[in-house]
Amino acid sequence: MEKKNSILKIENLSVSYGPIKALKNIDLYINEGEFVSLIGANGAGKTTLLKAVLGINTIERGNIFFLGKDITRKPTNVIVSSGLSLIPEGHIIFSSMSVLENLQLGAYQSLATFKENLEKIFEYFPILQKRSNQIAGTLSGGEQQMLSMGRALMSKPKLILVDEPSLGLAPKIVLDIFNILIELNKEGYTILLSEQNAKKALESSSRCYVMKTGEIAMSGPSLDLMNNPQIQQAYLGGC
């Protein structure tokens, strides 16, 4: 149920790459404290949607409101400093810098609370503390994903957008990462998670949007969708 002061509200959003229409009239909202997932096959437009929210993709039509303010077509750095953080797909980090420097870059908007934040991050990801002086490029894939998440959390965002965190990681590490996301949500972080791994996404989230070729095909509470025969057929391998 959409609350009156939803944290993120997307209205009628369309994005194109030249002749390719990647997003068609997307409507979406997220309430404070929610864990929402966004599932869909490869190429459905999940990444495009998250990038559009961050102002990285040029928006053709539609509006995006964050904390009640219109952030459509605002520069990315303005959007980020208003409290929105994207953990991009494919663990994008500054690989020639140390782990600590990566975290410092994530925190530069809120330098005053840097120490405090850093301790918090090291609680979530103890491995980062152990590796804090190591060059980020030498971390394993899972550690890089954790660094990417830690860096996004350093700015104390009010909403975290996570793009396919499980991509290319071992099952054990995927499990860890989902557990951390659930824990973060319990601590009060609002999360929008984009995933191809529909089963995992539905299990961890409370509400879900299903994307298909640039449109929202279906949406609702995750439990309902999990029991929906159509969804089971298309995304959960018919089990």
Binding site: I56, P75, N77, I92, F94, L105, Q109, A152
Partner: peptide, 25 residues
Amino acid sequence: TNQGRFFRAIAENRLAAELVGIPIT
């Protein structure tokens, strides 16, 4: 320094620099 780190961040990965909120221009 922070400013120096911004330089190196943009040099290394423009997208990631944008995502952590560094004002590119």
